[in-house]
Design a protein around this nucleic acid. Structure first.
Lengths: 346, 346
DNA sequence: TAAGTTTCTGAAACCGGTTTCCTGACCGGT
DNA sequence: ACCGGTCAGGAAACCGGTTTCAGAAACTTA
């Protein structure tokens, strides 16, 4: 801490002016005569003075920081989410404070701590109890991601109903009869909505859905576990598998190939996310593209906006991306996309 | 902001005591008579008073936060890094401020901003200029990750020389003659050290190394690109490929399989990291296990430790993990590991 | 030249806690 | 009854900025 003694008053003294003038110069808030400004700037430059963040924050009554609460980092979804959020926040001059819940019990308390040091907080679904979200919403601006809005906070999510379109494609266009769904609805509004869209599409098509989803988590390794459940331990192998995200889909494909099954010949597979790898594997992964980065940046923008706005739910459009893994012709030219019909703000 | 008016003085007034007493109760720093403590606690409880972070930080002259600077989030390496760091920091009561450089030019300035709001900063290799690292080191405690220490800051890294052991295994034990190396040394001390270990092993074994590395980045998609370069555009296909990390190795394997090549029959592949997926693919990926989480937690611990310690370089041990992709028998029972000989602190 | 504006600057109050310093009460001991 | 010692708790200073307020100086305008 070489320069722990350089504060406004000290700089003011060196430059022969008042602390007020130093403040005015350092933040450029008001007119200062060229001569004094010059004197002050020289001292600032010379001693590398940077206004103490706390003094400033205390006086301004704002933190200049946003909080981001998410369950844990696994895979490209959360990576993209964090990057997008961080990038947008920095663009508007805000710092980002991170809180990973790790699904642990004392997260609620940590969130309340965090609420005391940020101007706004983005909370991903499945991390903290509704009661705490509510409580925090009353202190600072809160936006929840991938969930519904509440009385005092807005939300941003993506349109999961497109899984219905995808399921209909498998049932109707390709004529698959025994579909499986890989993912755990409980604790994730996203997976819940996808599972429900999967069921709804079966109803509409007059097809019989599986008794329940194949319950695994969302990492690539979980796809390998699902492969074991579906291909080794099950008596009737499905002819198409709808996965809750791309990672499990890739894990599942690797598991299928490892067992000598052809994809999509013996089993068709679809994902959700359209992560970069989805276009690179062979066959290409049929999936739903969701704008994760936009999800994050929109969230950050809402947090930065004035508190007066009451935004409700923002739902971002998603697209079906048809590649080879569902049985379609895998054209290396741009894949066919079906735009979902989700509206903007509700 | 329902409770923006609840501060020490207000609570003090409500409880009929002085602000000093409220402070003493809220932080439990000194003896307060049971009766007053009770009165104060009731008011605190009732109105959900939480001491303003800035007031406290300003008075205590510490931020209660650590900064983490890294290039970008791609893949499990950085995910694990952030999680480990965040987890350790929270355990000691520190918050985490995130700064992702995105390889952009104005990172240096952002880092200096960040330095003004944290007690210590972890900087990953390849994010900011040495000069800035040096400058920040003079203000706060700095630990660099995956690089060497400097005059004023410590470092934590992992032992990359194990790539030499792995390369020797390919050359000597398996007898491969044409090896390739996938990764870009420039800008990454880790990849540089791995490439050098790769070259050194060739020299020791009297083998001829490739003219240069196959230059791609570290994401899974880059492995697919490397596959194109090595299998489609090259005249002499290598019989073994050493990848700078597991992600590119997996991308490369997918690329090889997609071209009808057998792994390891036609081409052997190795990685670095031992990410979870490495054990799940078939054949299992031969790789080097590095303790990423320990790298992160050690870094956080060093930052939390008193400033007086001069730690220099900490190098964490890494292990060769032999699975099927190099041509070894892929025993599903625990893989053989060769422990590296790296010391602890230097 | 007098009156009215505008522009610049410093003194002082304030943001919300923490901590030092000091007073007054209470204790046991002689 | 008097004295030294301990302890609880309040007044005030301080952490490092920002901002309001008011006064002084410079410049217009009549």
């Amino acid at each position: 801490m070489s320069n722990s003694r350089v504060n406004v008053r000290w700089v003011a003294e060196q430059a022969g002016v008042s602390p007020a003038t130093v403040s005015r110069v350092s933040r450029g808030s008001a007119q200062v005569s060229p001569e004094l400004r010059e004197r002050v700037l020289r001292v600032i430059e010379e001693h590398g003075y940077r206004p103490n963040h706390f003094g400033r924050a205390l006086a301004e009554r704002r933190h200049g920081a946003l909080g981001l609460v998410f369950p844990g980092l696994s895979g490209p979804y959360f990576s993209e989410l964090i990057q997008g959020f961080e990038s947008e926040a920095l663009a508007t001059g805000d710092q980002v404070l991170l809180l990973s819940s790790h699904y642990s019990a004392d997260t609620d308390d940590k969130v309340l701590d965090l609420a005391a040091r940020v101007d706004g907080m983005a909370i991903h679904a499945g991390t903290v109890s509704d009661a705490v979200v509510e409580q925090v919403s009353q202190q600072i601006r809160v936006v929840v991601m991938a969930d519904k809005a509440g009385p005092a906070h807005a939300s941003v999510s993506t349109d999961n109903s497109t899984v219905g379109t995808l399921t209909r494609h498998l049932l109707v266009d390709h004529g698959y009869r025994r579909l499986a769904f890989v993912g755990t609805p409980e604790g994730s509004p996203d997976v819940t909505a996808r599972w429900e869209a999967f069921l709804a599409a079966h109803r509409e098509a007059g097809a019989v859905p599986p008794a329940g989803p194949t319950l695994v988590a969302l990492a690539q390794a979980d796809g390998a576990i699902a492969a074991q459940k579906l291909f080794d331990e099950s008596d009737a192998r499905p002819d198409a598998v709808v996965c809750a995200n791309d990672e499990t889909a890739l894990g599942l494909i690797l598991g299928a190939l490892g067992r000598g099954l052809r994809v999509p010949g013996d089993v068709a597979v679809t994902g959700f996310d359209d992560m970069p790898m989805a276009a690179l594997v062979r066959p290409g992964l049929t999936t739903v593209r969701q704008p994760v980065r936009e999800l994050a940046t929109t969230t950050a923008q809402l947090l930065h906006a004035p508190l007066t706005q009451q935004d409700g739910d923002t739902v971002l459009d998603t697209d079906v991306v048809l590649r080879g893994s569902c049985g379609c012709q895998d054209s290396s030219g741009g894949p066919t996309t079906h735009r979902s019909s989700a509206g903007g703000d509700s």
